[in-house]
Design a protein around this nucleic acid. Structure first.
Length: 520
RNA sequence: CGGGAUGUAGCGUAGCCCGGUAUCGCGCCACAUUUGGGAUGUGGAGGUCGUAGGUUCGAAUCCUGCCAUCCCGACCA
């Protein structure tokens, strides 16, 4: 801490931190292209990646971001893949209103409790000029009933479903919506927590509890499949403890991922809502047996937060690393030339190669701009996470080779032009797999068992990651642990092995371990 | 929302304590030489100092409100 007196000097500390509740700011001069290292300041590193890889930026609106083309292209890929998965399992897309009448919210008690403190409310529908050149709200244009900007759509959807469902023949209803939602968060972070975010929300209606539970689990597995096989992010499938459950759900399933700083990130949730919303909105159906019953419901969603998971799981101190299956550009080709003649020879080859690669479904970008030098392009594509970079110059033309650099390991190799298309296709698969394996190995190394509260607290301070420990199953214990350590129960893993033990906090009997972690 | 801090050119900043319209680097534009890891030289453009008031002959500088951002806490996908 003596270092603090050395203001103006280069000190390897975050440029902003708080000591004894006093913020101390160091002037650390950074080249514009450099990013903070993960070791120096993980949060700052994350911000740098998002901004410098040109994924998103802060907007003029508090807590809301602008998703830039580079970032949106990745989100579009996520959407396309998930959308296909949903449709392959029988779901259809639909769209419900952005605004929800306030009265709808009070119909499901625990739901309103969960969202009430973070709602944007529309109270008026007109502006006027006040005569001094200012635009003001026209107080005479007050809405009779306020409208809530949706924080989630259960209420408006179940209000609608009431009109759609009379008989078991109308079931199941399997609908998904791609939308934006607003939750008035106090502290926001690009992609991880913004006041407005993009997501999909599935809302299904079923005749039986069994069927609804089956649906809840099916979607959880789809999310896990997506995270692992496309994002290359290993996840733990599990169920939330009652404390962490969705407002209005009987059971919440989730996938939990581990970030490189050892904090957990909830990457997707799937809820079994029981008959709560059907009862709140009076949605009944006549069964085969002629008996009237409330409909069973599920809802499930993933959001642009997945962008945060993708970034934090794989990227390094040189910038973004995107798994090939999510990369908008999978291969970038950079020509290196001294004369126009060289360039035209290189271009002839590259155009032919690009055609073959595109024929194999590989997206290629040929960057023949003469306004930037090769070294600049190398650094730039590294920052933006393009999985494979090909450099080709006069030397390569002579030797019939190219230079290939893979982003994940940063290994460079000279490869013959012959069979290059096959080589690249295999390389992309290899990168995808090796990114997953790396993340999986990290994750598995960071699940540690704790058998006492002392050990548990020690682990939280010394080794990041999940802690597997016995818990007595009560919300009180979970709450106490959360208050004392900031760690929460991330999930109770599915297919958890049963094992007798005692709760690390209360010493009461327990039948299984659950996963704790500090989380985003 | 509670505590702390910060807003000066596209980005990062100096100047603020001790009032006299602004410093430097990167980036940008032009030309030339360059091009296998973030080029070099020469010339040039760009700022109502977050915003609205107040004090003053005069405000980036002093005072007040507001807005935004960052850090710590509470809340949360």
């Amino acid at each position: 801490m003596l270092l603090i007196v050395c203001r103006h000097k280069f000190i390897n500390l975050p440029s902003n931190f708080t000591l004894f509740n006093v913020q101390i700011t160091f002037q650390i001069h950074k080249m514009s292209k450099e990013i903070t290292s993960r070791e120096a300041d993980y949060s700052q590193w994350y911000n740098d990646i998002v901004l410098k890889a040109d994924l998103a930026e802060h907007s003029a609106v508090r807590g809301c971001m602008v998703i830039k083309p580079n970032g949106y292209a990745i989100w579009e890929k996520m959407q396309a893949i998930l959308d296909k998965m949903f449709k392959d399992t029988g779901h259809q897309n639909a769209y419900f209103p952005l605004f929800i009448p306030k009265s709808f919210f009070s119909k499901e008690a625990s739901h309103v409790e969960g969202f009430a403190t973070e709602c944007a409310v529309v109270t008026h529908y007109r502006l006027k000029n006040d005569g001094n050149g200012n635009i003001v709200v026209d107080e005479t244009a007050k809405l009779e009933e306020e409208l809530i900007v949706r924080p989630t759509s259960e209420t408006i959807i179940w209000n609608t479903y009431k009109g759609w469902i009379q008989s078991y023949r109308d079931l199941p209803i399997l609908i998904n919506q791609w939308a934006n939602v607003v939750r008035w968060e106090m502290r926001t972070r690009l992609f991880l927590r913004t006041a407005e975010f993009l997501w999909q929300e599935g809302h299904t209606a079923h005749a039986t509890a069994e069927e609804a539970i089956e649906e809840t689990e099916r979607m959880l597995h789809i999310y896990a499949d997506f995270a692992e096989n496309w994002l290359a992010v290993p996840v733990i499938r599990g169920r939330k403890s009652p404390n962490e459950r969705f407002a209005g759900a009987l059971d919440t399933y989730c996938i939990e991922a581990l970030m490189q700083d050892g904090k957990a990130l909830q990457a997707g949730t799937s809820h079994f809502l029981g008959q709560n919303f059907a009862k709140a909105f009076d949605v009944k159906f006549t069964g085969k047996d002629g008996k009237l019953d409330h409909v069973w419901a599920t809802s499930w969603g993933v959001s642009t937060r997945l962008m945060g998971a993708l970034i934090m799981a794989h990227s390094d101190d040189s910038g973004l690393v995107i798994p090939p299956k999510l990369a908008p550009v999978q291969v970038v080709v950079v020509p290196i030339y001294k004369s126009d003649e060289d360039l035209s020879k290189i271009s002839a080859y590259v155009n032919e190669l690009s055609l073959r690669l595109r024929g194999m479904g590989i997206s290629v970008k040929y960057d023949d701009r003469d306004t930037q030098r090769p070294g600049f392009k190398f650094a730039d594509y590294e920052m933006k996470g393009v999985p494979v970079r090909i450099a080709i110059g006069g030397r390569d033309l002579e030797n019939k080779t190219v230079e290939i650099a893979r982003r994940d390991t940063k290994v460079k190799q000279t490869v013959p032009q012959e069979g290059l298309d096959i080589y690249i296709a295999k390389l992309l698969e290899d990168i995808q797999q090796s990114m997953f394996n790396k993340a999986l190995a990290y994750r598995d190394e960071h699940i540690t068992e704790a058998d006492s509260y002392e050990e548990f607290k020690e682990l939280l301070d010394t080794k990041a990651g999940f802690i597997s420990a016995h818990w007595d199953g009560t919300p009180e214990t979970e709450q106490k642990i959360k208050e004392e350590t900031k760690a929460t129960i991330r999930c109770i893993p599915l297919n958890n092995k049963l094992e007798d033990g005692i709760c690390i906090y209360s010493g009461k009997a327990s039948t299984q371990r659950v996963l704790f972690a500090r989380a985003y």
